[in-house]
Design a protein around this nucleic acid. Structure first.
Lengths: 243, 243
DNA sequence: ATAATTATCTATCGATAGATAGAATTCTTC
DNA sequence: GAAGAATTCTATCTATCGATAGATAATTAT
């Protein structure tokens, strides 16, 4: 029995038993993650102290170790939370695209519509003002300097979205979706959106805009759509040259 | 006289007299900045300890306070260094563009050539492998979370580059360079390049590339050029609709 | 040469970082 | 309502943080 405790202690120092918990514990855990998401997004991992995290979450310091072992554990839990939240938000659309792409009767016009829908959705997600806004900062930081958290978000969300985008483009220009140029095009289109978020400060200053309000976001979307049309056109031209 | 010393001490705690220095001091100062650029870029401001900075620069801790007052002062000095380095690297090209844009006899084809040159240069700067590579990380971080350092870099470099790009586009599509759509187009084109750097990890993983080597960088540049052609085409079309 | 200035060092400060032990409390279950 | 598990607390540890004092060495000016 003492042996048993040693074993248990050896495999994990965690005191919190994650498989069996009281409702109150789960709520506290969630509260900590929500607070941490904002803090990590705003100040980064190094710039956020555990005491600040505890304060924002309305808990005492040891609660963090109790639920997440250590600071990094909490950080990774935030990444997992984001990955799941985004996956559940984008999942249906991605599945729908997979179905329509697999269906040979789907018209090119319909595929293009799905692509616009996907990019619009991403633009709203990254540039619009909503509850996810704080999380985006977390992702942006991970892009700039990937940690383990990046792997989590990439595998659960980014890869799927990019694949989805590439599949649509591939079908539209009649090429395999593994094609480098197709994937490069997908990356470029998605990247343009992401940039307007990562480079937000610079872009807004350059455009002399106070913010991406609804009207201005619409203007950006128009530009994105034009670029999509243009990019697909160029890609199709290239396809005809080397069929 | 004692009064005088008090006054001097009050106006600045800095012991290092920046206007009059020995050559050796200037060299040490430069060495610290170079080391700090890499460290700050890699670990961020909060993640870099002054002791690490001192070690990397081969100086002792108080040297940092001696030359830069405090950690933040060193950080801002890094930003100023980057701004100047980039300005001197891109300055000639920007001036050349200004001259050619002001000259009404410059052909549209020539303007397009200048635009491609500018974007190619930016792609090399941000995606190519060279001595500036470490500094880029510093900028990327500032994009994600702007501090005072961002203002320095933006005003000295980004604004000028973006203005230059917008001026070229404006002239090509025959619109004023203050036009929102023109600036948005410029931001989009530059942004695409920046994204391939900020989102480097994700992009490389998605494309299953190990790195942006010379060949692959060339492929990216081709895509950028296609997008430029396409974007200008769309913009000109829009101009004809609303002249 | 010597005085003044500039540069660098050793040693150490107070503050805060992340983490933990162990007691006290709350909740669930029987 | 008592036992036992889960949760939260107070108090504290050690390591490291950025910063400074004050002495010393190096360089230049007179």
């Amino acid at each position: 029995m003492a042996q048993d405790r040693m074993m248990r202690s050896a495999e994990s120092k965690r005191r919190h038993n994650s498989e069996a918990g009281y409702p109150r514990g789960a709520e506290t855990r969630a509260r900590i993650i929500l607070a941490a998401l904002e803090a990590f997004g705003t100040h980064g991992f190094g710039g956020t102290s555990t005491r600040l995290l505890a304060d924002k979450a309305g808990v005492t310091l040891p609660a963090l170790q109790y639920y997440f072992d250590d600071k990094e554990g909490l950080y990774l839990a935030c990444a997992a939370y984001i990955a799941e939240a985004l996956a559940s938000r984008l999942g249906p659309q991605i599945e729908k695209i997979a179905v329509r792409v697999a269906d040979p009767t789907t018209s090119r016009r319909a595929l293009r519509g799905l692509l616009d829908e996907l990019l619009d959705n991403l633009a709203d997600l990254f540039l619009g003002t909503h509850e996810l806004e704080k999380w985006v900062l977390f992702i942006i930081r991970e892009q700039a300097q990937p940690t383990k958290a990046f792997d989590i978000i990439y595998e659960h969300v980014m890869r799927k979205v990019a694949m989805s985008c590439a599949a649509l483009i591939a079908q539209i220009v009649n090429r395999p979706s593994i094609d480098s140029e197709v994937r490069l095009c997908a990356a470029g289109l998605i990247g343009q959106i992401i940039f307007f978020r990562t480079g937000r400060t610079a872009v807004l200053r350059f455009l002399d805009w106070p913010d991406f309000d609804a009207d201005r976001l619409a203007t950006v979307k128009v530009m994105l759509r034009n670029h999509t049309t243009a990019a697909l056109g160029e890609l199709r031209k290239a396809t005809r040259r080397t069929p």
